[in-house]
Design a protein around this nucleic acid. Sequence first.
RNA 1: GAUCUCGUAGCUCAGUCGGUAGAGCACUUGACUUUUAAUCAAGGAGUCAUGGGUUCGAGUCCCAUCGAGAUCACCA
Length: 511
Amino acid sequence: MTEQELQRRESLSKLREMGIDPYPAEMYEVTAFAQDIVTQYQEEILEDGAKNRLNFQSVSLAGRIMANREAGKALFLNLQDSSGRIQLYLRRDDFMQGEEAPLFDIAIKKLLDLGDYVGVKGFAFKTKTGEVSVHVQEFQFLAKSLRPLPVVKKDAEGNIYDAFTDPEQRYRMRYVDLTVNTGFRDIFIKRTKLIKTMRAYLDELGLLEVETPILQPIHGGAAARPFKTHHNTLDMTLYLRIANELYLKRLIVAGFDGVYEFAKMFRNEGMDRTHNPEFTALEFYVAYKDYNWMMDVTEQMLERVARAIHANGESTAEVGGNVINFAGPYRRLTMFDAIQEYTGINVETADESELRDYCKKEHIEIDNSMGKAKLIDEIFGEKVEKHLIQPTFLIDYPVEMSPLTKKHRSKPGLVERFELFVNGKEVANAYSELNDPIDQRERFEDQLRLAARGDEEAMAMDEDFIRALEYGMPPTAGIGFGIDRLAMMFTGQTSIQEVLFFPQMRPEVAE
RNA sequence: GAUCUCGUAGCUCAGUCGGUAGAGCACUUGACUUUUAAUCAAGGAGUCAUGGGUUCGAGUCCCAUCGAGAUCACCA
């Protein structure tokens, strides 16, 4: 233990010796928040020069002590609660009556540490330097802090000193990060607002919020490697879901007109600043609709989210120097037109060898197993994706890449699918859902052939899902959003770790 | 997975050419009854990420390992 930790444990036992409980069980009544007092406190100067205080004359607040300035027999503390900070003013005279005398000199002045949770009662006033403060009349320990917090200081110009900046420590000890770097709380508040706004919108559309299994015997619905686990009683292998799509569609089969789920997904793949092993997706499916309808809905929903998140109701967000406008309508561009626009290649007429030559010329990595569809996907990823800054629907994909998507109503070889790109990154994936059970079985069989050739991410056959489709699924539009990536866009963050409270980390070396 | 950078006091960081470890804040003691990055005086605090190697001598040079960040690859 460090010197400071030992000192704090010493303070703790001294408090107990004085009969003060450092961790009282009783609830503490809070009647005011720091920020409200600071912004709403008012006083008037009377004719005789006296001050007439107009509000907050009897308040009770609670929080953490974040600064301590002793001034002789007075004491100035900064108290931080969920709303912000306020200065506390304590005078020994207020605590000197009779047997309470030691409380001030010993318990408060000596045994109070930065980071302690306390409750105070008193009245608001303005110090002679003009700071709204609380003159404390009653003081109580609520929870002793045994470890020193990083002390971040700010001067009058707003310059920050000794900020707690080490990303490793910030992510490992988010409780410390959010205590001393309170500005980061706003990211998470906005993240929640994003989800609540989407939920409200979907509820208005009349969709039903549902929950589907996280532990799945067959990992379907996406192309990704799963986490594998084992159920002891059933003695069977289960997978943490990589997607919930096939379950949500079973519910459309069941007769719900629309269902949605905010779902944690788990993918056993690399980690970087846009990938965490577990992440959140919103998926929703609506019967009797198609992907054109879904594009309209997406525009409306994202515009509403943008306006809800920004205090001024703006529909724009700034990410990495780009100002992105989420007000619809968004550009709708076919994948083939997009490639034509950014590379000059006519994918429709080009054959596989032409595409191969282009990739070699442009140093795009390919291998011999790739067919035309895969080559198109590679070219798109290398040459087009990064240009799609403003929200853009990329539509009509080759059928080979989309085993769960309905064939295009008029374009042979394509499917009715779109992905939404914002700031050069994919944030949503949607399609007119494949509801022809015979076609679906053939698509799964194609996937099995890919798996046999060594494609680790090919989908497995899901006989029960086929059975569900055989009973009949109405024409349906479905979509999945990457909530973490959306949260990044709406909060201007470039790392997924900044929008997750507890990003995955390698194990810490024991203290 | 590859490459590069980083890891020194609770926090933020210095540490020269290899010569037994420094600052500010925080902490301890004292002074000060309207201070506010409070101030003033004195003091304490370190397995220099871990393990090896070179050397008379390693925070510093070399190797390995662990952790983090960035870039790339992979992955919707």
